[in-house]
Design a protein around this nucleic acid. Structure first.
Length: 576
RNA sequence: GGUCUGGUAGUUUAGUUGGUUAGAAUGCUGCCCUGUCACGGCGGAGGUCGUGGGUUCGAGUCCCAUCCAGACCGCCA
């Protein structure tokens, strides 16, 4: 071993001992006759001391940042201590110094507050990983994974690996494909998730399975989306929806307790329909209320065209904002008019401190009209009501976005606060306007509610799935369902999705066949592990900080400069 | 596929209506400094202003194209 202790380990109890440390030079403070070096590793930092009586002092001055050192010396008490450092009471009087490796001056400072921009830090990710603020996230990720495994193992789940080279199924996200050399002109696909395999494991009798595994989707990226990401993939046989909900609510609670020491209360539940109605999306942030209030019945017939002609008029109440300036309201109007939101405008009603109501549409609405609206919205004195109008789906979405924006502006999205939620009763299908056909909202293996059996043929869009999501603070953490487990029902589903019998057999024959050999009732769930980590650890939805080597906005690895062209010879072998 | 923001020393950035030698901080470097820990003090080096074209007497600044990065919409069964 190169060391007897780590750089974060030495304390007063080690005083007088001869120890050996190995690590990186964080910085050198040369005071002329005194030289201090901060030696860093992932456990912490220890101060090395040299004075002019030391034959090593001159060498110490010649070292540079990020040189790798091995030092041996005595631990001694500092004459001026640093309470901000764990090892701040002691320092090492160095007697032997070995340079294990030199370093070029790094392109950015390797400190908690770095001067490096994102590009540069991605290109030199291995240097960025030396920063405690970065490595801390990955070490926490490890803790999350460990506590997941601890819970799953405790509940009798077996970790089974599933293949990465599988068959392309053009349903859903785009597949990453891998050309086959042995089967020229044919391709494997990388799994978007282990969905069909875990169901086959259920048929195979592994009634409790889980896996922390990589998934691949060739879609555009976001702050919370990577082309390869990790799922906690879980499946159980002989269970109903309630069993799955209990089991995995337990897992989330376990992880929060183990990693953060936080006791989450029982998760409330809300239907998909109510989520849209009250929050404008299917993953509401419940850290604050500010519910959407439908105003259609109160605003019509006053000759205000924007409201009279709208399919949907909706208000939200921003508490204590009645004194917003014209500049602030204009800014919000511009915000909702951005193409990403796409509203035509925003109407304001101020609930004045004197009990008066003033709006940007006073021309059409009397004080009494405004009062009725305010009362319907349960607005108090000093509040500001923001009203949007237009088509139902678009306006709901816009109102939901505006609600989140106001929540952010008013500081209502507290990072200390966790508000989990089960979202239930998703629709089984959604209409694809582009392809003029039904798509599975969750995936094509999702079962539907028995009560809705009749609707399957008469009104497929109204059929409710046995599907459920865990949402925390507006982030969709996981998604699952009770699956179909017999051939006839699965064939029915495929036909609803517009697959012919031949297509269904070609793409999914293996699972249809499996269902004919005693497939047990089963269901499960999959958690986005990267998101889970970012929420548990930092309560943000930015997953790149929790991935050791992430890809950038356009799916490039900036360190490797991948993807890249490949050898002409390799192409030929692959028949490309 | 679309919308928006940004690109100026190694790095992070300022740069007014288009006008003299593009400024700062940090990093690097030389000297001084016996208790620093974001050490301090004095000095020094370091810039094809992303790239290409255009307008102009004159472009970091205005226009067009393009590349790169970031955020978002579409997309993500």
């Amino acid at each position: 071993m190169y060391r007897t202790h780590t750089c974060g380990e030495l304390r007063k109890e080690h005083l007088g001992k001869s120890v050996t440390l190995a690590g990186w030079v964080q910085g050198i403070r040369d005071l002329g006759n005194l030289v201090f070096i901060d030696l860093r590793d992932r456990y912490g930092m220890t101060q090395l001391f040299f004075d002019k009586s030391s034959p090593l002092a001159e060498r110490a001055k010649q070292l540079g940042r990020e040189y790798v050192l091995q030092v041996t010396g005595f631990v001694r008490e500092r004459s001026s201590k640093n309470p901000q450092l764990e090892t701040g009471d002691v320092e090492m009087l160095v007697e032997k110094l070995t340079v294990l490796n030199e370093s070029k001056t790094p392109p950015f400072t390797i400190e908690d507050v770095t001067d490096g921009g994102d590009d540069l830090r991605m290109k030199y990710r291995y240097l960025d990983l030396r920063r405690a603020v970065v490595s801390k996230n990955l070490l926490h990720r490890h803790r999350v994974a460990q506590s997941v495994r601890e819970y799953m193992d405790g509940q009798g789940f077996a970790d089974v690996e599933t293949p990465f080279l599988i068959k392309s199924t053009p349903e859903g996200a785009r597949d990453f494909v891998v050309p086959s050399r042995l089967n020229q002109g044919q391709f494997y696909a990388l799994p978007q998730s282990p969905q069909t395999f875990k169901q086959l494991l259920m048929v195979g009798g592994f009634d409790r399975y889980y896996q922390i595994t990589r998934c691949f989707r060739d879609e555009d990226l976001r702050a919370d989306r990577q082309p390869e990401f990790t799922q906690i993939d879980c499946e159980m046989a002989f269970v109903e929806q309630e069993d799955v909900l209990q089991m995995f609510e337990g897992m989330v609670k376990h992880v929060f307790k183990k990693v953060r020491g936080i006791d989450l209360k029982d998760f409330p539940r809300m239907s998909y329909t109510d989520c849209l109605k009250y929050y404008g999306n299917d993953k509401p942030d419940l850290r604050f209320e500010m519910r959407l209030v439908e105003l259609n019945n109160l605003v019509g017939g006053k000759s205000f065209k924007a409201f009279d002609e709208a399919e949907y008029v909706v208000g939200i109440v921003a508490e204590n904002c009645s004194e917003y300036t014209r500049k602030q309201t204009d800014e919000l109007t511009d915000w909702v008019k951005r193409p990403q939101i796409g509203s035509n405008g925003l109407v304001f009603i101020r609930c004045g401190a004197d009990g008066s109501y003033k709006s940007s549409v006073d021309k059409y609405y009397s004080a009494d009209d405004l009062k009725k609206i305010a009362e319907h919205c349960k607005a108090q004195v000093g509040d500001l009501i923001l009203i949007l109008s237009g088509g139902l789906a678009k306006t709901r979405r816009a109102a939901g976005e505006l609600r989140l924006e106001m929540g952010t502006r008013l500081g209502l999205r507290n990072v200390e606060d966790y508000k989990p939620l089960w979202v239930l009763d998703f629709p089984l299908l959604e209409w694809d306007e582009e392809d003029k056909r039904w798509n599975a909202m969750h995936h094509p293996f999702t079962s539907w509610k028995k009560e809705d059996n009749e609707l399957i043929n008469t009104n497929p869009g109204a059929v409710r799935a046995n599907a459920y999501d865990v949402v925390i603070n507006g982030v969709e953490l996981s998604s699952g369902s009770i699956r179909i487990h017999n051939r006839a029902q699965q064939e029915k589903m495929f036909s609803l999705l517009g697959l012919t019998e031949e297509q269904a057999n070609y793409k999914f024959g293996f699972i249809l066949n499996a269902f004919e050999y005693g497939a047990p009732p089963h269901g499960g769930i999959a958690f986005g592990f990267d998101r889970f980590c970012s929420i548990v650890i930092s309560n943000l939805d930015y997953i790149r900080d929790f991935i050791a080597f992430p890809k950038n906005n356009s799916g490039r690895d900036m360190m490797l400069d991948a993807p890249s062209d490949i050898d002409a010879r390799l192409k030929k072998e692959l028949g490309l």
